[in-house]
Design a protein around this nucleic acid. Structure first.
Length: 614
RNA sequence: GGUCCCGUAGCUCAACUGGAUAGAGCAUCUGCCUUCUAAGCAGACGGUUUCGGGUUCGAGUCCCGACGGGAUCACCA
């Protein structure tokens, strides 16, 4: 244990003035303001109606109460209201020691000891900012869920980092979280790769080619597309209409036959399917391991689509769905402002929607205590989920209300959307490798890691490189589309993951050195220079909570940057171990400890792990 | 065409959910390493928050309209 923790907690003088202060500061001030208001004006106001916010830096004070809305209740001008309210609050038994008024803004000044007590009290807890495990309901979070016909790309990285981070943030808020993905291992897309591999593959395997399994299968998916296009072109030249040609190209027919054979359980087809899928999974596993994401449970579409089909047939009997003359099953959602949607093809095979119905219901069945499901899927599928939840509801499942689509925006390239056809896809493996390489180049050039063995160095490169990528993708509001320019690459300086890591490492370095320098006594009173950092530390629990409520890790990412920036500036202007006064050293060390601990936790909730050196 | 999302500095993004003088990074320029890690710090430059109305003490934020960009409305997943 660090000296400044034990010396301040063991046996003595630390007795906070407001030890039972369970509520956070702002709520407390709201209640105080409510009480003070009644004293001053003889009329009650609801504590919730009091707007408390941090005082802006350019004004004196810690917290500000906005008094414009209160003027209506006080029957006084806003600034007069502020004065009287401030007067009454100072007289209450609480931390408010003084105040000043600017226009209708009441700036409250807290007792100096308030923040000292807080630093040594609430902020010192190892659990600061997180809720006890199991104190909130069970949530299932789905993410990743790639197609098994091509390798993971930049879009999947955003998806995985987002879903993984949201899972951790929910856990920090006390939820039990089950991380899942649906493996789309079935359907026409995988059949296309199978057909192409049979036609052009000549028995090629990952072993024989040295290609990662997902890359190999992706290669044949591309080969299929190429052959298909050629056939269509040929048919059009022979006088067929384009639409007709697209629907009847022989290689497509072959893929559709393969799908029928697969659904019929044909031995050879199923066997090849298993082989090629296993190649893809092995490739994905490697990529997930590099990314640092994991899953608690996998759902396979091949296991859930039949359940979906059964529910659709039940719905058909109940008259919720309708069968057209050719035998296909549809739902008519025009009364709900949507369109007609296909649920079963005329040949009885299932579509995407069918299996998602089955999957959703199976998951609630598997976890009886499940409170809700979160689907991390791109915003291009908003319509799909709208329809899915509506269908579940029409089928009579109340679980429909407990499903949430966590929709996120596309990662766009300067030329627009990624198109595999045009070769503009940014491959996940390649991009991560590039990040590691940049991290290595920078570190080696500066000679920062001399003295570490190769394994330790690699671990640092990976953490630093991955931090750049993860932070880059997570700092943007999930719902917004974002831009990625492969030529400009991802920065390692400025508002970036490595900047945050760097300052964490500096803080940790100080703490390691401090261990050998015993100092006793209390901590000095924080000055204005320290208040920036203390204020941000105080925000931490709310940031974690807000990130969970809104499924938005970018709030947390931005907090990590803000506090790091504040620490970096502080670090530059103040010598922490070299201060003249022992109590000042103690204060600065306490702040450094709170900073590194909260930052470590916050970054971990983003899925970013921190090195001790870099 | 219907529905949904977005529009903030040259570029990439913030803005505590309606609060005070809209902030960071990149890029450009100027300083700072004999000092706890310079992947850093300090400063300069950069804005009619796309445009026009409305709501009120107060609007980048809310409502209406226009313009611009994206997504979606598949017997692909």
């Amino acid at each position: 244990m660090r000296w400044w923790l034990c010396s301040l907690h063991d046996g003595r003088s630390f007795s906070p003035k407001y030890p039972t202060l369970k509520m956070r500061l702002d709520q407390n001030l709201q209640q105080m303001a409510s009480a003070a208001f009644e004293t001053a004006f003889g009329r009650p106001i609801d504590a919730k109606d009091v707007s408390v916010q941090k005082t802006r830096k350019e004004f004196a004070g810690d917290r500000t109460i906005v008094c414009f809305p209160l003027a209506r209740h006080s029957q006084c001008a806003p600034d007069a209201t502020a004065h009287k309210l401030g007067e009454a609050m100072v007289h209450l038994d609480g931390p408010v020691q003084g105040f000043n008024v600017v226009k209708g803004f009441l700036n409250l000044e807290l007792e100096a000891s308030y923040w000292q007590d807080w630093l040594l009290g609430e902020a010192s807890s190892p659990n600061y900012g997180i809720q006890p495990a199991g104190s909130a309901p069970h949530v299932m979070v789905e993410y990743s869920s790639p197609n098994t016909n091509k390798p993971l790309h930049l879009g999947h990285l955003r998806n995985n980092f987002l879903g993984h981070s949201v899972s951790r943030i929910l856990e920090a808020n006390g939820h039990t979280v089950t991380k899942v993905q649906i493996i789309n291992d079935r359907g026409i897309h995988i059949c296309k790769s199978m057909v192409a591999w049979r036609k052009f593959g000549d028995g090629e395997t990952p072993e024989s080619s040295g290609l990662k399994g997902d890359k190999l299968v992706g290669k044949y998916y591309v080969a299929f597309d190429k052959a298909y296009k050629e056939e269509v072109r040929g048919l059009v030249q022979d006088g067929m209409s384009e639409k007709e040609a697209e629907a009847s190209a022989p290689i497509l027919m072959e893929a559709q036959d393969t799908l029928r054979l697969w659904e019929g359980g044909d031995g050879d087809t199923v066997s090849l399917w298993k082989t090629m899928n296993s190649w893809v999974y092995a490739g994905f596993e490697t990529t997930y391991a590099t990314m640092g994401v994991e899953f608690d449970k996998l759902y396979y579409e091949s296991d859930t689509y039949l359940t979906g089909k059964e529910r659709v047939l039940e719905g058909l009997e109940k008259g919720i769905f309708e069968k057209t003359e050719d035998g296909a099953v549809w739902i008519d959602l025009t009364n709900d402002g949507l369109d007609r949607k296909l649920l079963l093809r005329k040949d009885g095979t299932t579509v995407y929607m069918t299996q998602d119905i089955g999957t959703a219901l199976l998951r609630f069945q598997d976890c009886p205590d499940l409170d809700r499901q979160v689907y991390t899927v791109g915003n291009e599928q908003e319509y799909h989920f709208k329809v899915l939840f509506l269908i579940l509801s029409k089928l009579g499942y109340e679980q429909a209300d407990r499903c949430h689509h966590l929709s996120y925006g596309m990662v766009e390239l300067p030329e627009g959307k990624m198109k595999s056809r045009e070769g503009t896809v940014v491959d996940a493996d390649d991009l991560m490798a590039e990040m590691f390489g940049i991290a290595r180049d920078i570190a080696q050039e500066a000679g920062k890691l001399d003295g570490l063995d190769e394994e330790e160095q690699n671990s640092v490169f990976q953490r630093v490189g991955l931090s750049a990528l993860k932070y880059y993708l997570l700092k943007v509001d999930p719902k917004k589309n974002m831009m990625f320019d492969p030529k400009a690459s991802i920065d390692f300086y400025g508002n970036t993951g490595p900047f945050i890591l760097f300052n964490y490492v500096r803080g940790r370095s100080i703490l390691r050195k401090a261990e050998t320098e015993p100092v006793s006594g209390g901590i000095a009173c924080p000055e204005a220079d320290e208040m920036d950092l203390i204020g941000l530390l105080h925000d931490f629990p709310e940031v974690i909570e807000e990130s969970a409520i809104t499924y938005n890790p970018s709030l947390l990412a931005n907090w990590c940057y803000d506090i790091t920036k504040a620490y970096s500036s502080y670090y530059q202007d103040h010598s922490i171990l070299g201060a003249d006064d022992d109590q000042v050293i103690a204060l600065r060390l306490v702040i450094t400890e709170r900073f590194t601990r909260c930052l470590h936790l916050g970054m971990n909730l983003l899925g970013i792990s921190l090195p001790e050196r870099m």
